[in-house]
């Protein structure tokens, strides 16, 4: 160290070199997770409500006796579906909407971080949260007497989770990137409640009026619940139709989000 080091004002001298993409994405992901843990309302909606729904409604048979099996066999896929909606849509939309309104996204966009590392970090943070959710829900389900049915398929569950996450995250970012933060907050919470009713989560679709059930079955929440029910072995049936529905929404919503998202 020469004496000149001491006189050099901080922030001057040979320019710093940018970090690798991986290092930047990792730093952003850890930041996302740290901030997520500070959002009380986000923790409530991503962990407490899905776990609560599983715990409470596994005590009742809401199917009206139309399906066999224990209530928990139906409630585990339903609460997993709700957890995905909470993490990928509600929580992501609200956090991103406020970041946008406070100029956080603009500020990061002007740094060496780069857009792709930012998008990757948000994706990674959602995946980490969902992994914790799924472990938590499966443990609770197990404690309530759930076990995988004979037709269970890990591959189908994984496909449902991935497609559902892309679809809901796409819609969450579409809201966050086009609406005011307050409007995003209100709409995301409203849709969460609607999904709870129309997503085959608390009530099976066949307990709804026929026209409502038909409309709901082509929307992402019920399609995801359906795929997860078959994948976990709690329901028998062909998963092709709900997988196609989810894939359609994943492509459309993620595509719209990518085209319509505005940083300011």
């Amino acid at each position: 160290m020469s004496a000149a080091q001491g006189t050099r004002p901080l922030g001057t001298g040979a320019p710093a070199r940018p970090a690798s993409w991986i290092a930047k994405a990792l730093a952003l992901t850890l930041n996302e997770l740290r901030l997520a843990m500070r959002r009380g309302e986000s923790l409530l909606i991503t962990f407490v409500i899905p776990a609560g729904v599983l715990l409470v409604f596994s005590g009742f048979d809401m199917s009206g006796g139309t399906t066999g099996g224990k209530p928990v066999d139906r409630m585990l896929p339903g609460s997993m579906s709700l957890a995905v909606i909470a993490a990928a849509m509600v929580s992501l939309a609200i956090a991103t909407g406020f970041e946008r309104s406070y100029g956080v996204i603009k500020r990061l966009g002007g740094s060496p971080a780069g857009t792709s590392a930012l998008v990757a970090s948000k994706t990674a943070a959602v995946v980490v949260v969902e992994a914790v959710q799924m472990v938590l829900l499966v443990l609770i389900g197990g404690a309530l007497g759930w076990s995988a049915g004979p037709g269970a398929s890990v591959l189908l569950v994984a496909a449902g989770l991935v497609l559902g996450t892309v679809a809901f995250a796409g819609f969450g970012l579409l809201m966050a990137g086009t609406l005011r933060a307050e409007a995003t907050l209100a709409l995301a919470n409203l849709l969460f409640l609607l999904a709870l009713v129309l997503g085959g989560i608390v009530l099976p679709l066949d307990r709804l009026p026929a026209s409502v059930a038909a409309a709901s079955s082509v929307l992402p929440p019920a399609a995801l619940t359906h795929v997860l029910s078959i994948g976990l072995g709690g329901a028998i049936g062909d998963a092709t139709e709900p997988i196609v529905v989810l894939a359609f929404w994943a492509v459309v919503l993620a595509g719209l989000a990518a085209r319509k998202f505005r940083w300011d």
């Binding site: 710093a16 970090a19 930041n31 901030l35 959002r39 406070y102 956080v104 060496p112």
Partner: peptide
């Protein structure tokens, strides 16, 4: 506009942005 998350602290923000450089 500051462009900083309300829940972050100055030390966290500086350490985050520092990690964008080698």
């Amino acid at each position: 506009e500051g462009g900083i998350d309300n829940r972050s602290t100055p030390r966290e923000v500086l350490r985050l942005y520092a990690r964008f450089y080698r």
